[in-house]
């Protein structure tokens, strides 16, 4: 029996045009990010507020890079391609770059909130934001959990991403 993607011709999202990438690349990047976020939490807890805020600002900038340029053009991705991937076998399958790119945007939102609150004088918010972002990055790196995928569905369900297309599929 044939398999039929009910509405594959009607997926006009421009994000789908991003090239496919080796799924181990974003996970490699998430591992580095998770470790650095833990350092922010530690610095924040020990009262090194300025250092914590500085490092979280750097991480927010890296998230912004990933969110704007695409997960495939993230600096960690370049490191992965140059140093890690040549030592690994070929990936089982390539994956769409849209979900990890969306996840970078979520990371940017969380870390930027911490940076803004930190600049406003609320030092514990820096550690709290880093802890939240750490959980997502850790689950991504270790368990291959895709926060971007889940949040995208939840935002779509809330109607935030539905925009103009509410017509029935398959038409």
């Amino acid at each position: 029996m044939p398999s039929s993607p009910v509405d594959s011709p009607s997926r006009p999202s421009p994000r789908r045009n991003r090239p496919d990438l080796d799924p181990r690349g974003p996970r490699f990047g998430a591992a580095i990010t998770a470790v650095l976020l833990l350092v922010v939490v530690f610095l924040s807890l020990t009262g090194a507020s300025v250092a914590a805020l500085g490092l979280l600002t750097v991480l927010a900038a890296l998230f912004a890079w990933g969110a704007l340029a695409g997960a495939g053009r993230h600096p960690y991705g370049t490191v992965f391609k140059a140093l890690v991937r040549p030592r690994l076998g070929p990936p089982a399958a390539l994956e769409n770059a849209a979900p990890p790119t969306f996840a970078q945007g979520v990371g940017l939102l969380v870390t930027l909130t911490g940076v803004v609150l930190g600049l406003a004088g609320l030092a514990p918010a820096v550690g709290a934001a880093a802890a939240v972002a750490f959980v997502a990055a850790f689950l991504n790196a270790v368990f291959d959990y895709c926060l971007g995928c889940q949040l995208y569905l939840i935002l779509a369900r809330a109607g935030i991403l539905a925009r103009e297309q509410t017509a029935a599929v398959g038409s």
């Binding site: 039929s4 009910v6 569905l153």
Partner: peptide, 23 residues
Amino acid sequence: VVHLDVDLTHRRDLANRFGILQT
């Protein structure tokens, strides 16, 4: 046996009806 793939991005109704929390 038939397999169908439904994109929920524009089908909130289905997602809510079946309480879909992950894809």
